[in-house]
Design a protein around this nucleic acid. Sequence first.
DNA 1: TTGTAGGCGTTATCAT
DNA 2: ATGATAACGCCTACAA
Lengths: 341, 341
Amino acid sequence: VSGQRAPRSNIRAVAEHAGVAMSTVSRALNGHVDVSPAMRERIDSAARELGYRPNILAQGLRTRRTRSVGITVSDLSDPALAAAVAGAERQLRRAGYSVLLTSSERAAELDRENIRLLMQRSVDGFILGLSDAQHPALADLLREAEVPIVLLDHDVPAGLAVSRVVFDHHAGMTRAARHLLALGHREIALIVGGRARPARERRLAVTSAVDEAGGGCHCVVYDGSFSVAHGERSAGRILDRTPQASAIIAGGTLLLRGALRAIRARGLRLGVDVSLVGCDDVLVADLHTPPIALVYPDMRSIGLAAADLLLEQMLTPAACRQISLPTRFSRRPSCGPPGSR
Amino acid sequence: VSGQRAPRSNIRAVAEHAGVAMSTVSRALNGHVDVSPAMRERIDSAARELGYRPNILAQGLRTRRTRSVGITVSDLSDPALAAAVAGAERQLRRAGYSVLLTSSERAAELDRENIRLLMQRSVDGFILGLSDAQHPALADLLREAEVPIVLLDHDVPAGLAVSRVVFDHHAGMTRAARHLLALGHREIALIVGGRARPARERRLAVTSAVDEAGGGCHCVVYDGSFSVAHGERSAGRILDRTPQASAIIAGGTLLLRGALRAIRARGLRLGVDVSLVGCDDVLVADLHTPPIALVYPDMRSIGLAAADLLLEQMLTPAACRQISLPTRFSRRPSCGPPGSR
DNA sequence: TTGTAGGCGTTATCAT
DNA sequence: ATGATAACGCCTACAA
């Protein structure tokens, strides 16, 4: 009714309204044991009447726990990473934590800058999907954190005590490679990008699967940046070469998009003129014509698992742990026997 | 060298190290005018030596400005919304603001719960991509916020002073409908979902474009939830009806995915047996075979614009503003003349 | 130009 | 079981 806006009521206002001391209000609201039921009721109703909500900043200043966690991802525009963040946010929210989110735009420098900022905000823990987990200055910085850290599918920087959740890329990629070999492909081209763990694991899995096959089978790796451009350029080289590789594995969403562009530009038929396996993406592949075979990690799950792990470690500091999540391989018509082309 | 970890140094430590008063340190570090160059240099180097970083919580408690903004989106797993968040985060980070992110999982109840939580954390402003901007209890809550608010492509709740950035869905959808009409389609089926602004604008645009065409042209709207299931079910009904509509517009990513499934399940050829226009999505559509025509809003831009608008309003409180962003229509082979089927 | 002191809202320690 | 009071780290009148 009044035109004045009441300032948000604080604990002192509640104390006065209930006619008790501030400390008593604090105890009652925080569920301490030594509070009489009558007093608790009185304070609860006073707080309700005033619409009291504690100031989390002040609580954090006093208790040194902010009930917030910092999440840094290399690129939030990447739907895969967004899914991971969504999963983590959900778990953390349900546990009463807030998420401070930053994106480092694939720049190692921003990784560190963002982490520093989050430290300044006194987050209780970190979930990190970094641009470059191996950057030399990073380890020093993380050592200062003094709070639990969970890495998303990354290698652990040397001599650092952090937990992590990783994907078993090896299993899925091995199955993909064997599938192609079983179809009769003798040469498999692998496009990967970035120096992070996924690229390395994928390369390792495919090369060793091909090596094991023996019989003149071989694997050519196209390494570069994690980008559509690299995917398109590499696939272009593969397809324009004579003799061309009959099968391509694109190690990531952007690389897959690039490869698709190169294939389309040349008017080639998927699963006939060239076989293709993608990774990560779940949006593009299944509805494609024809559907594209895929090795995929459940990105939402890695977010959930990372949050669970972090919550556990924030609650009771313990030794660092590592969790491995499976990857799936879906055969789809984009893979066929090597063509006559 | 020492095994002890030093507690993060505070302003008092810097003051003692430099042999001056805390207030002087505060002034020097915050760039006040009345500080002698010599003193500034002395304090700067002391701060550097101690690796001092101000505690943002304490600053916020004192100044009532936290340099943080709350972002709530209805579903972070939606790549479109993730792109908007990524855009906003970038601008805010560059302006020195941190992002507190929550997702409301398409539940109006969580919208409010999350906003309340963000208010408790004293954010300086909000960017909201809500699940239900019209929920009756929402307006009251937002009125309590006392900080600038920017809505993402939503209607403004009655009697509320907020800014917003919207897409001109009307323009893009009108062009799409006219394109289909020009190709000779007489009946256009529109699948929309959700009660939010985009669905309403799209329906309005398509129905009026079809009405204007006259000559027995008509439009059938399939309204429902914003989900793959609704898209698939609606497209199924459209395609199984006799006579079937020859053109479908799917008003959103999930609906498009559903429609594609229905079309594929019936073995129909896009652009021949049935014409299809999608909305929003940029990942699936362009690389599809054949490429799918699309009305698309630039989601990253809406994030950027929302952040810019919010920053402006946080800096100098002013009247609420509204910004309209264009939508583009891309003709692609998924649209052809009505078939003989 | 610099120092002193009070308070932002909360919790924790100590009395009572 | 409850109350008074001192911090947490910072900023900002005001005094010097």
